[in-house]
Every structure is written in C-alpha cells, then in structure tokens.
Nucleic acid binder design. Structure first.
Lengths: 303, 303
DNA sequence: ATTTGTAATGTAAACGTTTACATTTATCAA
DNA sequence: TTGATAAATGTAAACGTTTACATTACAAAT
C-alpha cells in the first residue's frame, strides 16, 4: 500500500459510484432509497431527518422520493430507485397490499416499512401504536364530558387511519357511546382537506363539541376553518389531533396532540435497514413505538 | 420495431439506470441532485416540492441531500452526487464563495443556485429580493411608530442574511433612525436559535418594541420564548418575520410575514436546470422574484 | 424475379469500477 | 545469500447499458 495509495491521494481520486454500483452486488455502494407520502407533513420530515442522521453516520446517500399519496407516482419512484440499484429501501406503503413493494421484498431487496406495514407478506416494520394513540385522545375527550366527537381522517385505504379509527371506536364503546358513522370524514391527508372537512363539520345542524383530527396537516387546516368563523377553542369546540409539532405551543390556542416519535422512527428504520442489508435472511422485525398524549389548551371540559 | 419491442413489453423489461448512467454522457439518464440547507424549514420544503413537481413531469428522479448548514456535510453530498453522475444540481450554497460548487460549475456540470448566489463565478440563480423584503417589513414597523427593532438573523456568512440586514439598515436610515448593532443577533437558523435569541432580547434592560426575525424557524422559536413569558403580542411586543406558512393564520396571534414564493422558486430552478442541461453554453440567468408583505395581527402601532 | 430503399435486428467496443487470480516486489529469518 | 512469506501491483473479465456501424428482413417498384 504505497505508490498506488499515494497516487490515489495525490490525484484526489474519487471512485465513480455509478460504476461501483453497476459492478458490485450491493453491500458497498451505499445508496438508500426513501419513499415518503408527503414531504409537507412535518411528521415525515422528522422521519427523513432520522433516516438521514443514521445514513450520514454510516456514509450512505439517501435518495428521496415524495409520492403525495399518488399510487402511480409511488410506483414510478419504486421503479426508478430499483433501477438505480439501491442497497435498500425505506418506504411508507400507500396501502397494506402494495404489490410494488411486495415484489421488491420477494426479489430479496432489503426493505423496511415505516409508519405502515404490509398485510400480505412478512416485512420489517417500524410504526407506532396508532390504535392506542387514537384511543388515548378520544378517551381524554370522553373523560371531560364530550360525547359528540367528529373524526377528520385521512383516506381509509391508508392502514394508519384504519387503526386510528379502531382506537376511536374502542374508546367510544368503552364509554358506552354509540358509534356514529356520520361523524367520521375522510378525504385526503393535507391542509386543504382538513380545512374543507372542518367546514363541513361546523355546518352540521347538531355541531360536535370536539374534533379529533388524523394528522398534522388536517389539524392545521381545521384550525384555519375554525378561526375563520371566529369560533373559540376550546370554549366552543375542543380539538386534538395526531402529531405534535415544535410550534404547537405557539398556536392559538396551544394545541393538544398525540405525539409520534418521527425522528426516532426514521433512525430506527435506517438502523433496521442496515441490519437487513448485512443479514438478508434474519427474521423480520416489527417495532411498535409508543405515542404520547400531550395536553395543552385546545380541549376543555363540558358539562 | 416488432419482435424486439414486443419482447420488451412482454418481459416488462426495465432498463437499468445505473448502466445507462455509466455509459451515456448525461442528457438521458434523468437524475437531478438537490442540496438544501434545512429540510425542517417549511420554506425549503416548498422549494423541494417545486423542484419535484417539475422533475416528475419531465421524468427526472431527484436525489436530495440535506446539509443542515454544515459545510463538511455539504461537501460530502457534493462529492456523492457528483460521483453519482447527476445530470445537474440545484443547490443553496452555504456561502457566496463556496469552492465545491464553483468547481462543479467549472467542470461544466449544470448547476443552478437557489435562494443564494455565488460571488466569485457566473452561475444561474433564482432567488428573492431579500433586501427589499426586509426593507418592507422594517419600513412597516417604523411606519407604525417602532424605533427599537431587534433583528434575529441567521449566520451572516449566509448571503441571504447579509441582504436582509442591508434592507433592515436602509429602512432605518430612511427614517433617520441610527443603526444599533446591539439590536442584531445572529446564530443558527433553527427553532432553538430563535428561542434562545428571543430570550436574550426579552432580557434586555431597554426592551425593543418589535422583533424582525430572519426566517420561519427563528420566528417560531421566538414565538415560544415570548409566550412562555406570557408577553402579549402585539400589545407588548410586535413581531414580523421572513417566510409565510399556510398555518401562520392559526398562530397566536395570526402572524405577519414576508412571503417568499418557495414553490415557484423550486419550479423555476428546475426549469432553468433543464434548460442548462439542454444548452450548456447559453448565457447564465439570474431570476429575482418578489416578496410580499403579509400583514396580519402580530404588529401594532405604538405611540 | 430482381432491385431498391427503409425498417428491423445484430455486433462489438466502451463507460469505470470490482472480482479473482497471477505476478512482481519487499521483508525477514535462517 | 537464499528461501519463504507477505505485501503490493498487474491483468482480464464482467456488470448492463449506449453508440456507431454492419447486416439482414421486408416491402413496394421495376
């Protein structure tokens, strides 16, 4: 290790990663794929940061694709990343039976699912206990007297929202409150959707006394709808949602929320992917993290 | 175009992008690099979305690196993306004399700078008129009677903040108010930094009547500091910052801000990069977009 | 049936590495 | 000095495309 090494240093030779990747059967090329549903959602940004944090420490590059809940776009990114010969993929499947991802797993490409799992196939997953998280929120609302609680959900083909609905139902049933399907609304998972659905809810003849919203963006959208009508939170309506944000405390009013550890999820997923790459045949792992109910000022007792 | 094409379709043949990229001299391989300073900042998320929007339409994949204002990390991503043989790069340089980016430009790799330019070399740029944006904010504050206006800035090696400071100074001088260096603070560009600096400002013996904060995250951090002391906005202190957010209206109070068109900037940058890839020797372009002052309820007149 | 032009297909080299092996050079003990 | 062993270097094939060119197949025109 003399003349050659010296020249390598002298000429500042940088190996061409494309050629490396073409030639070698993975394990050295250091490229991770990350496919997320919505980069606008601060929760997924936390996930990205977690993944990146781990990747950076282990000298991986991360190639990110953002599919905006569009199945075609998800498929495109899957194809692209695959033909980029990535070493592994972290992905939040658009639904539980995602064939594209199933295929990758079957081809033995290391995959770890994040936020949502796959139902038809055994795969590594890191997610949160959505059912319990939703349960805790609704349980809190019920405990302070609310009985008419609307749920602003994301599309029910997304596994996360199915689980959150289950938690919503379980809490209701624990309190002997009948489930009313007219109180649950699902459309997209973005700001606009939260705004629109909240408006519908506020127009209901018998207005709910509380709103449970399915994510960050839905909550923020709902907040705008409520404020634009000058309805007071929590005096006139309570609201609590999934996902906490650093600035939740600065919202009007400081927002109560179900916190998910996004950064930790991302980091854990990257770590699991790393393990999977090293050890393709070890038993698949499911990691289910806990949520935390953070009570601030957006919910109040009613008689 | 018969048997071969038929087989291609029948076997669902997907060309290997790595091999394509290795062999061909760019222009067909469809990979863009995007290096941004802080993916947690919603402004840059808008930029990412804009880039992605254009890229998706033109069948490009986007490889994102997030360097968190860490020069070493920026360099790493530059090296990685370069050895990935990207067709072009969109980057927000960490400072105006960034040698790494200069080198790419000299090597004739298509580069467009976003949010910030380069001083030593001619390069495509899309940015915003930061000087005028800051001027407008401070001018507004001055017009409603404020004279002691603190500035929570990001690090002054970042060109954006140099420009914003210039706008701050110009407005002051237009009103015949002396510039006081003790009123401008610069550390990082994140939430924590905004929180810490705001606390320092609030501790000043002669407390400023208004705060101008340099970005999204700084504003949000400052907000938390102010709220944690139960100081009323805008009665006791006014605040206005760079960057608007969809949910600014739901903050306490609804926040006034200098809006930057992040999505448009991203889209425009991607478009310019596309042009540059097609036409490597055309004249470099500088696009300077306008900011918009959005007045809500976080600033009030003082006597 | 033959020619002609065009569309379709075939061929070989090249992109910059890795891999496996062969060869050369250096190192140390006897 | 010699041999044995290890370290360093050299060599050739392979990864899956693109590129440029050569060849073959297929019409339509003669």
């Amino acid at each position: 290790m003399l003349k050659v090494q010296a020249s390598i240093a002298a000429l500042e030779y940088k190996p061409n990663r494309v050629a490396q990747r073409l030639r070698s059967t993975s394990k050295k090329t250091k490229l991770l794929g990350l496919i997320i549903p919505d980069i606008q959602n601060p929760f997924f940004v936390d996930v990205v940061r977690g993944v990146e944090d781990y990747a950076y420490q282990h000298n991986f590059a991360v190639m990110i694709g953002n599919f905006g809940q569009d199945e075609k776009k998800e498929k495109l990114y899957l194809d692209i990343l695959q033909s980029e010969n990535i070493d592994g993929l972290i992905v939040a499947p658009i639904h539980g039976k995602d064939k594209g991802i199933e295929n990758l797993v079957k081809k033995n490409i290391p995959v770890v699912c994040i936020d949502r799992g796959l139902t038809e196939i055994d795969v590594d997953v890191v997610k949160v206990d959505n059912e319990q998280g939703a349960f805790n929120a609704i349980d809190h609302l019920l405990s302070i007297g609310h009985r008419k609680i609307a749920f602003i959900s994301g599309n029910f083909k997304i596994p996360t929202y199915i689980e959150r609905l289950a938690g919503y139902k379980r809490a209701l049933s624990d309190y002997g409150v009948a489930y009313n399907a007219h109180l649950v609304f699902a459309k997209d998972t973005d700001y606009k959707s939260g705004f629109e659905i909240a408006n519908k809810i506020l127009d209901l003849k018998e207005r709910p006394t509380a709103i449970f919203s399915g994510n960050n963006l839905l909550t923020l959208g709902a907040l705008e709808a409520i404020h634009s009508r000058n309805i007071k939170i929590p005096e006139e309506i309570s609201i609590i949602g999934f996902d906490d944000m650093p600035w939740s405390i600065s919202l009007n009013p400081p927002l109560s929320a179900v916190r998910q550890p996004g950064f930790d999820m991302g980091r854990k997923a990257a770590e699991m992917l790393y393990e999977r790459i090293q050890n393709p045949n070890s038993k698949k792992e499911k990691v289910i993290l806990k949520t935390e109910l953070i009570l601030r000022k957006s919910t109040a007792r009613i008689e």
